[in-house]
């Protein structure tokens, strides 16, 4: 099934359960029990995953990232949206 692009700034993210998360050399890694896939989120991907616990909407996650990292809003929004689309396609998050 092909999922359409549904993520917007006010979208709320929910993490899908059934994944084992760990940290390796400062980067977040994950093993999906459901799919048998191993994911490397990298440093910033791991930061986004952690922020999703604290901040319910995509816009809040982007705002917080811009407090931490030197990046303009347009670049940050486009790249975070693309990353979240990938997570959604892999079935690691649900978008509401």
């Amino acid at each position: 099934m092909i999922k359409e692009s549904v993520i917007q700034a006010d979208s709320q993210l929910t993490k899908v359960e059934g994944n084992i998360v760990s940290s390796m050399d400062g980067e977040m890694v994950m093993l999906s029990i459901n799919s048998g896939k191993y994911y490397n989120f990298g440093e910033i991907g791991g930061e986004i995953w952690r922020l999703a616990d604290e901040f319910p909407t995509v816009k809040e996650i982007i705002d917080e990232l811009r407090n931490i990292y030197e990046v303009d809003e347009e670049t940050c929004t486009a790249q975070v949206m693309e990353f979240l689309e990938h997570l959604n396609k892999e079935g690691l998050i649900e978008v509401n």
Partner: peptide, 17 residues
């Protein structure tokens, strides 16, 4: 001081028999 930004990428590897 803010950290340097890098594009977030999801690296996917197949793994469990």
């Amino acid at each position: 001081m803010k950290k340097a930004w890098e594009k977030p990428e999801l690296e996917v590897l197949e793994v469990m028999t």
